[in-house]
Amino acid sequence: MTKTRVLDAAVVVALVLYPLLLPGYLDLGTRMIVMALFAMSLDLLVGYCGLVTLGHAAFFGVGAYSAGILAIRASADPLTGLLAGGVAAAILGLLAGTVLLRSRRLTLIMLTLATVLIVQETANRMNWLTGGADGLQGIDMDPVLGRFAFDLFGRVGYVYAAAVLALGFLVFRAVVDSNFGKSLVGIRENEPRMRAIGAPVDTRLRIAFVMSAALAGIAGALQAQVTEFVSLNAVSVEFSGEILIMLILGGAGRRYGAFLGAPLYVFMQDYLAKEDPANWYLWIGAMLMAIVLFAPGGLTKWIGALVGRATHASPLPGRS
């Protein structure tokens, strides 16, 4: 348990130190936080259920559009918006999950890809509601809890996003540490055996899928609120691929993977956009291959192994 405490403390310290050390880059920090939350939602599917999807942005985007449209047309209260984003994405997740979860592997990847393309096309066509290719503009959020108004420097936005991430992580961890979460891992490792011992595999995967969609929707709503803008890119295949890369970078199914992968990716994106914008995909491709080749399990596993080797030298050399 002490390891968990150390890691939790590290996350909190990073969240607190960032605005103190880099007060001029709060927007970037907020983006890292939102991506971490989104990557965490994907982790529930990829890391714990073993279901690979290339369409998770569908849920992020629906959450973002729901929160944005709600803010423009009805209520601009941030927490109501988060709830609306989560619920809308969960409903889509329930509908999509019923169809998608009948298949696995390539077929599942293709169906999730189809889902996100169809959602994107729908958002594009309904431009009277979503703004279409111009994006959803004119979002103006009320103060958080009626007291903390969003400021120009993004201070409130940062703290608000960090709080949502922390709460999201507590829920996420409670889920993956529960017996339910352990049965998901069982399904990932050996689905036929789980069926054989009588586990309700389909129901559990469907619940996990809806949870993951809801969390992705909340991340989307958060992004819509702090940036006060939603673009069609929020429901794209490219974005779905990017979030998968962030998760793999940090390490899937390892609880803290999203905390490392998402910020690192967002930082690299920002840095390379200034230094070497022409070769962005080259760098990402090379990095992805390096991770798969040299640090399978992502950076969290790699760092964990380094720390493990440094702290307690094995009494039996060659075994770990």
Partner: peptide
């Protein structure tokens, strides 16, 4: 050289091919 190592790991294989796809894309552009 690359894909054969991950015969038992479909996710790693897929991420590897995705890495190649991005690499080829920018290489062709260059």
């Amino acid at each position: 050289v690359f894909l054969r190592r991950f015969a038992a790991d479909p996710l790693a294989q897929m991420m590897m091919t995705m890495g190649f796809a991005l690499l080829f894309r920018d290489a062709a552009l260059m």
